[in-house]
Nucleic acid binder design. Structure first.
Lengths: 127, 127
DNA sequence: ACTTGACTTGGAGTAAGCTCCAAGTTGTAC
DNA sequence: GTACAACTTGGAGCTTACTCCAAGTCAAGT
């Protein structure tokens, strides 16, 4: 169970909250690189892989599709983002989107608060 | 084009940003009530309907499924939310979820800022 | 030797949310 | 009266993101 030997798919699933089927699916669609296999064919994961999965989970929460994540995940460790101006711009745009999402969500929270206090629904516009 | 005669599906589509197919689909699945028809069978929409669609769009942004929206949209104007304790609780829960979403998104924005400044990706955990 | 459990594979199935299509009707413009 | 645009309907098809399945392999335990 120590990291020197890597983690099984089940351990990885437990650590990330992704199901083992989902992890295999991410490999199948090329979102995760083909995992190393042990002699018996079983997948082995290391902390970098788990790190990648956490990044996937984070980007997913912001509404990014699995397909759009691929370019980010395919960058390797030391890569300088400024060498990929399109990616850099996409990430900036994505940040803007998230900031807008936050503003909109805040508006919706205010709206719900009004509903919860006025105790009815369907009677006002948000915009 | 004035509201007295209501809006066509196309006008409604333009006002809400939902495609006409999507509006018909929402009617088909019972998310929107069956729209009034003109003598020729064409759908007519009024500002309450457009209001409902805006509410749908807002709830959608917070990740609520179309199915979960139904009970809220089926409440009528004057209905007192406290008469529907389950709905009231669901709405409170939903607000909590959105507030959590906001916190998480803020963390991701911070993370992206680090990436944009450090100019590389894939090298740190968020949690 | 045999069972059990954790895995492997390719591929099928599922759910949500649209999106598109064909065939038909209606109303206006020329 | 004929072309055209804007609708109608039911139903098929599509995309995303899983989720499940059958059949097989392999290692460890009894």
């Amino acid at each position: 169970m120590s990291e020197v030997n890597g983690f099984s798919i089940k351990q990885t699933s437990e650590q990330t909250g992704l199901s083992d089927d989902t992890i295999r699916y991410y490999e199948k669609i090329g979102l995760l690189p083909r995992a190393e296999r042990k002699a018996n064919g079983h997948r082995v994961y290391r902390s970098e892989d788990i790190n990648s999965m956490n990044i996937i989970l984070c980007l997913k929460k912001t509404g990014m599709s699995l397909d759009d994540m691929k370019p980010y995940l395919h960058l390797s460790y030391g890569d300088d983002l400024t060498e990929f101006p399109e990616l850099y711009r996409m990430l900036q745009d994505h940040k803007k989107n998230i900031e807008n999402q936050i503003v909109e969500l805040q508006i919706i929270v205010d709206f719900i608060n009004i509903k919860l206090n006025r105790k009815n629904v369907n009677d006002s516009k948000i915009h």
